[in-house]
Amino acid sequence: MTNQILEETMGDLLKDFDVKRIRTGDILDGEVIDVNDKEVMVNINYAFDGMILKEDLTNMDKDPREVVSKGDKIKVYVLSPNDGEGYVKLSRTRALEITEKEDILNAFNNEENITVYVKEEVKGGLVAYYGNIRIFIPASLASRERIELSSLVGKEIEVRIIELDFKARKIVASKRVLEDAVYEDKKKELWKSVKSGEKRSGIVKKIIKAGAIVDIGGITGLIHLSDLSWGRVHNAEDVVSVGDKVEVFIGEVDTKNERVSLILKDVDKDPWETNATTLKVGDILEGKVVNLLKFGAFVELFPGVEGLVHINEITEENIAKPSDVLKVGQIVKVKVLDVDKVNKKISLTIKDAEEKSKEYMKYNDSDEGVSLGDLFKGLFN
């Protein structure tokens, strides 16, 4: 039967079935009714079934039976309404090229996610495919965390198209943008839950001059040097190291600007409450010089409790500055002059403590023995 006669017969048959004619370029819905190693037969709800040759089924070198099965619903592209054998010649790959482009365009315009298959790692990133369409994922956009790119090869991942130019065959996708969105949502929820005064577990991420940066589960905050310990701290490294797991108290919370201060020292064990409350005017005790200023010296009596020795209370001698007779780290005897528990301030004297100490030693070192009356004789005349 010649092609002309066949076409005429098909035309007559179409009239009898009262169906629409199909044309080259149409995309139809079909159902696989048979498949073998060379071709696929498809029902396209037309007077004649369609046929897809192996080379028109997929761009991969696979047996058609590995690609589709009987009963599968697929999109097909009409290559020819008549292949000369009484079938409609179809292509699945051509249909996919069109529908996949439409999918990608819609996803790009609507900022929707698509699932791609990562085929290989290349210089600068990953090559992935959405069906038959090649997509590039730059290394910097493969994840918000540091990962081995090879760990994604062979996997299906969700991405967002961020650049699209079909003419230039440039399609760029990002996995990181999705992870960043999840991270930001999680962080907003965390900021809502953070309350001043509560205790949280954290990990020291960075040491800076002002203190230590700690991650408390998606939120980072600063532990200032003064909040690392009740005692005086000059360097954060003296107390914590990067990677340390710590228990911290939440200090001030600024949700608007996403800032939070953290406290490492135990706020429930204020040394002023445990030690300073026992101090009385006139007490003599030892302390360590922790800071020297022009007007005086700060002496640590207990960890977290310091008192000021004014320059006039250091020695009877006339000195220009405290460092003329004292040095940081020196252990000295001090006498308590005043205790302001409300403002947590203590006034101390060194010269009076030394003088009393000398008198005491003089009294105890006397061979002959001296009475208190003899020691203070003449003081009250």
Rank of each mutant, 00 (worst) to 15 (best):
N132E: 12
V116Y: 02
V153T: 08
A297Y: 03
E85G: 15
K335Q: 11
V305F: 10
K344F: 04
R146L: 10
L152Q: 03
V309R: 07
V325M: 11
L292R: 10
G243D: 13
N364T: 00
E102T: 07
N364H: 03
K351T: 07
K327I: 04
E359Q: 08
Y129S: 03
A236S: 06
L79F: 08
D103S: 13
N45L: 10
T277Q: 05
K265I: 09
F166K: 00
D37R: 06
G202R: 09
A353S: 08
D238M: 03
H224S: 03
E158C: 04
E8A: 10
G125P: 10
S140V: 07
V233A: 04
D270Y: 10
W191V: 11
I114R: 02
V67I: 15
K75D: 14
E163R: 11
K209F: 10
R176F: 00
L292F: 13
V127I: 12
N343R: 15
H234Q: 09
L293Q: 11
T315D: 07
E368Q: 05
K155H: 08
I319N: 05
K75I: 01
K89D: 10
E189I: 06
L90W: 06
G217M: 12
A320E: 12
V177N: 08
T274C: 04
L57A: 09
D238V: 01
K205S: 04
N381C: 01
T24Y: 03
G378N: 01
L13S: 05
K344L: 03
G218E: 13
V281N: 12
D227N: 04
I22F: 03
D283H: 13
E97Y: 14
P271H: 10
K119R: 12
D244L: 04
Y77R: 10
K20H: 05
G202A: 01
R65M: 14
V35I: 04
K170A: 04
K188M: 02
I137V: 14
G202E: 06
L348Y: 11
R94K: 15
E55P: 00
D165K: 03
A142V: 02
I250Y: 09
S174L: 05
E198P: 02
L14K: 08
K333V: 01
I216G: 00
N257D: 09
D283T: 06
V182T: 11
T24G: 05
K155E: 14
D56T: 03
V19R: 02
M10E: 14
A236I: 04
V78Q: 08
K209V: 05
I44N: 01
V233K: 07
G25P: 14
I331N: 13
L279D: 02
R94Q: 09
K321E: 10
D103E: 14
G154K: 09
I216W: 06
